[in-house]
Computed example of a mutant assay.
Amino acid sequence: MRSLAVVTAGLSNPSSTRQLGEKIAAAVDSAVTSRGESIEVHFIEARDYAEELASALVNTAAKTPLLDDAKKTLSAADGLIVVSPIFQGSYSGLFKMFFDSLDVESINDMPTIIAATAGSARHSMVLDFALRPLMTFLHAMVMPTGVFQATEDFGTPEGARIDQRITRAAGELANFIVANPDHVEGLSKDFSHNSGRKRKSGVGIDTDDFVPMSDLLN
C-alpha cells in the first residue's frame, strides 16, 4: 500500500486549510485507486506540534517525541501534500517552523502538491514565489499544478475551476506515486530514490551513514 502525507498549518479547528488538504487528499486517493493501487493518508497538523517545534528550534537537545514521529511518517511517504494559510503575504510562521525542523534530506525527490488558502485571490502568487521555492530547496519534486483557494471563491465559477485544478494536481501526483497507470499492484517503479538520494528523517542514527568500528580501525 502506498502512503500519502498531508502537512497542513491551519490555526483553527476545523480550518479551511485542513479542509482543502482533505479535499486534495481525497482526489489523490481516488486517482491512485483508479490506477489499481490503494493509499493510506496521514495528516500532519503543524499546530499539534507547536510547543515541540518551539522547543526544538531554540534547543537542539530538546525531547520532541510527537514531532519525531511526524518526521518519520513524512520521510517514509510516497507522496506529499502541503497546505498553508497565507499570512502577511507568505506561508505562515508555523508552516515554516515545521519545515525548518526537518532534515534537509527528509523529502528528497518526494512528489509534492503545493496548496494555500487566503481571504483574497491577491495572494495566489504565493504558490510560485514562496511555497514552490521552499519545497524545491528541500529537493521535493513539485507538481506543475498548485492549488490556491480564497474565501471569496466559494460558491462562484472560480470555485468550480479550483475543483478542476485539484483533480488535475491529484492526477499528476498519482502518476508519480503509481509510475505506470496500467500496472498491477507490486510492479510499479519506486520513485522515492529515483536520483540515488536517500531520505533522512533526522531522527536517531541513519544506518546508511553508520560506519562499522572495524572499518574505522583499518
Rank of each mutant, 00 (worst) to 15 (best):
M1G: 12
L4F: 04
A5V: 09
G10C: 06
G10K: 00
S12H: 02
N13W: 06
S16F: 08
Q19M: 14
K23W: 06
D29E: 15
R35C: 09
G36Y: 05
E37I: 04
E37W: 09
S38Q: 14
I39Q: 05
I39W: 03
V41N: 04
H42M: 09
D48P: 04
A50T: 13
E51G: 07
E52R: 03
A54V: 13
A54C: 06
S55Q: 15
L57H: 12
K63P: 05
K63H: 10
D68M: 03
D68T: 02
D69P: 00
A70V: 02
K71D: 06
L74Q: 01
A76D: 13
D78M: 04
G79F: 04
G79V: 05
S84M: 05
I86K: 09
G89T: 09
S90M: 12
S90V: 02
L94P: 00
K96D: 03
M97C: 06
F98T: 01
D100I: 03
E105Y: 10
I107L: 07
M110C: 06
T112S: 14
A118P: 00
G119H: 06
S120G: 03
V126Y: 00
L127P: 00
D128Q: 08
F129K: 10
F129N: 12
R132P: 01
P133C: 05
L134H: 01
T136K: 09
F137P: 01
L138E: 00
L138K: 00
M141L: 14
M141W: 14
V142F: 05
V142C: 04
V147K: 10
F148A: 12
A150R: 01
T151I: 10
T151C: 06
D153S: 13
G155E: 08
E158V: 15
D163A: 08
A169L: 05
A169W: 00
G171I: 05
G171S: 08
E172A: 06
A174H: 02
N175A: 10
A179D: 11
D182N: 13
V184K: 15
V184F: 08
L187G: 11
F191W: 12
F191E: 11
S192G: 08
S192C: 08
N194H: 12
N194L: 12
G196I: 06
K198I: 10
S201W: 07
G202K: 07
G202W: 07
V203W: 09
F210Y: 14
F210P: 03
V211A: 10
P212A: 13
S214V: 14
D215G: 02
L216S: 10
L217I: 14
L217V: 14
